[in-house]
């Protein structure tokens, strides 16, 4: 029964996986550009955002088509409506990876005042959060979704560590201030990416349970 509908839902899940992997790639590209002080890579990352924006539009169109043609209810409606909400946060993550690359361009010409240890860890952790959130959506895995929500604390603690380091660098030498501000911005972008990943996971949770925790 409803083979066509099930095929469309399957297509939606596949598209979500594709968008998730685009985001993972954009985060990886952004951190590579930053760490390697590679301007070309930074430019590529900024341009890459267009692919994510396009994917958001494609998925949005697919969801609207599904609602129009199939009038989904219950689990099906939650699957479609959660996707519509998730892609907004996913698209914002793409923007932030591009924003990070914009700053990477500015930072490419002078040596770093410190090793970007925690920022790298933030990139790694947030990319993992996004991937796991999308996996949780596709697999309808509540535990995985909730693990993503919990992982935000790790990202937040890295952010605090970065902030403390940078304050230390400025105290040591005020000439570090300018670069420290830029690095703090970058850390903040990663921290925001973590928040978006949490939003995504909360919608995954909703798609499984029918209850959004923010509505409780």
């Amino acid at each position: 029964m409803r083979k066509g509908f099930d095929a469309q839902l399957e297509q939606l899940k596949n598209e979500m996986i594709v968008m998730g992997s685009l985001i993972e790639t954009s985060i990886a590209m952004a951190i590579k550009a930053l760490i390697e002080q590679n301007k070309e890579q930074a430019q590529k990352t900024i341009a890459f955002d267009e692919q994510i924006n396009q994917k958001e539009k494609d998925i949005e169109a697919l969801c609207l088509k599904l609602i129009l043609q199939q009038q989904p209810v219950a689990k099906d409606l939650r699957t479609v409506s959660a996707a519509l909400k998730m892609i907004t946060d996913m698209e914002r993550i793409g923007d932030q990876a591009a924003d990070i690359s914009e700053i990477a361009l500015l930072l490419a010409d002078s040596p770093y005042i410190k090793k970007l240890e925690h920022i790298s860890l933030m990139a790694e952790e947030t990319a993992k959060m996004v991937t796991n959130a999308v996996d949780a959506y596709v697999q309808r895995n509540l535990v995985k979704a909730r693990n993503v929500i919990d992982a935000d604390d790790i990202v937040d603690s890295y952010f605090d560590a970065v902030k403390d380091d940078l304050i230390g660098m400025i105290s040591k030498d005020v000439r570090n201030g300018s670069q420290a501000m830029d690095l703090l911005m970058i850390a903040k972008y990663f921290e925001r990416i973590g928040d978006h990943a949490v939003n995504i996971a909360e919608w995954v949770e909703f798609s499984i349970t029918g209850v959004h925790r923010q509505s409780l």
Binding site: M1, R2, F5, P72, V73, A74, K75, D76
Partner: peptide, 8 residues
């Protein structure tokens, strides 16, 4: 669920 989602 099966009935209302048309998978009855």
């Amino acid at each position: 669920e099966d009935y209302i989602t048309g998978r009855f």
